[in-house]
Simulated assay, not measured.
Amino acid sequence: MSIVIVDEFELFLKKHYTSKYTIKSYLSDAKEFVEKGYSFDKEGIRQFIFDLLDTEKSASTINRKLASLSVFFEFLKSRGVVDKNYVKLTEKPKNDKYLPAFLEVDEIVGLLENIKNLRDRALLELIYSSALRASEVLGLNVEDIDFDKLKIRVRRKGAKEMYIPISKRASDYLKAYINGRQEGPVFLNRYGKRLSDRSLRKIVKKYALKTIAKDISPHTLRHSRATHLLNSGMDLRLLQKFLGHNTIKATQIYTHLNLKQLAKVYDNSHPLSKDE
């Protein structure tokens, strides 16, 4: 269905727009949204924004993409695929200050502890423990894992490689899942090929809806880990290095999140916050 929708959207654009650049830009952004498996609702739009922010896209770039998606959602609305243009109903990032969604620690525990499939448990344990981007965990090869030193080699933007730590628990699940394999992609689909981005998103969404009744993306696990580390006292510069952010500005978004959460906890615990 998704492929057909994009093809129909291309015909729609060619009928209503004359600029080849506009058509190419709108179509490219719509394809990106569809191919990565975001849901056609407000939560899907929010996850799209979070993921772009995590790759350090500017607010202006994100808002340009959202303008494309607004046209796409108007098209979807005209076809009866959605009942509203959810792009228009979603808060847009301003000055790059847009707080990412995250899960509480007990929600993470509930999510992970209810995954019985070994591959999926190893996959989500690793994403959370090492705060990995989807591309980083999917690009991981068996040769990149050092079980003895509890670290993995990840490939980041700009062809950069770095070693980051993994938890003992994630390591144990990884070792059990790999089961002696010496090389090749770590996470495989049922055909023995490297797991795709779309499949990863479906896996995360499936377990989250089933266990904690939330529609999340792989990046939500990354955001959650970053938030939990900051709340535990990790230095911001160290967190920047751990997350692989090129600038401290991208990491500072978690300080805003941290302060917001602190204010919420304070308000809820204040003796005057409860009715007599």
Rank of each mutant, 00 (worst) to 15 (best):
M1Q: 13
M1F: 11
S2A: 03
I3S: 10
F9A: 02
L11C: 03
L11T: 08
L13S: 03
T18Q: 05
T18G: 00
K20P: 00
Y21A: 06
Y21P: 01
Y21R: 10
I23R: 01
K24A: 10
Y26H: 07
Y26N: 06
L27H: 06
S28T: 01
K31N: 08
K31T: 12
E32R: 07
V34M: 08
G37A: 09
Y38G: 04
S39N: 06
F40S: 02
F40H: 04
D41T: 01
E43K: 13
I45N: 00
R46T: 10
D51A: 13
D51G: 09
L53D: 02
D54Y: 10
D54K: 12
S58H: 06
S58R: 07
S58P: 09
S60N: 03
R64G: 08
K65R: 12
K65I: 02
L69A: 02
L69W: 03
L69R: 04
V82I: 02
D83A: 04
K84F: 09
K84G: 00
L89G: 01
T90A: 04
T90L: 01
E91R: 08
P93L: 09
P93G: 11
N95C: 06
D96L: 13
K97W: 12
Y98F: 14
L99M: 10
F102C: 02
L103V: 10
E104K: 14
E104P: 06
D106H: 15
E107C: 07
E107M: 09
E107S: 03
G110I: 14
N114M: 12
N117L: 02
R119V: 00
R121F: 13
R121L: 15
L123S: 03
L124D: 07
E125Y: 09
I127K: 10
I127F: 04
Y128H: 13
S130Q: 11
A134C: 08
S135T: 07
E136G: 05
V137T: 08
G139V: 05
G139W: 11
F147V: 14
D148R: 15
K149T: 04
K149Y: 15
L150D: 13
L150G: 05
L150M: 11
K151A: 05
K151M: 10
R156W: 03
R156T: 08
R156Y: 03
R156P: 01
K160W: 01
E161D: 05
M162Q: 11
P165L: 05
K175I: 09
K175Y: 13
Y177W: 09
Y177C: 04
G180Y: 04
F187R: 04
R190Y: 11
Y191M: 09
R198L: 05
V204C: 04
K206C: 00
Y207N: 03
I212N: 02
A213M: 10
K214T: 12
K214Y: 07
D215Q: 13
P218R: 13
T220A: 09
S224H: 12
A226C: 10
T227Q: 14
T227S: 14
H228L: 08
S232A: 15
G233E: 07
M234Y: 05
R237F: 06
L239I: 04
L239Y: 04
Q240A: 12
Q240E: 13
L243G: 12
H245L: 12
N246G: 13
N246R: 15
T247R: 15
T247E: 14
T251R: 09
I253Y: 02
T255C: 11
K260D: 14
Q261S: 11
D267S: 12
N268A: 07
S269P: 03
S269N: 03
H270Q: 02
H270C: 00
L272T: 07
K274D: 06
K274G: 00
E276D: 08
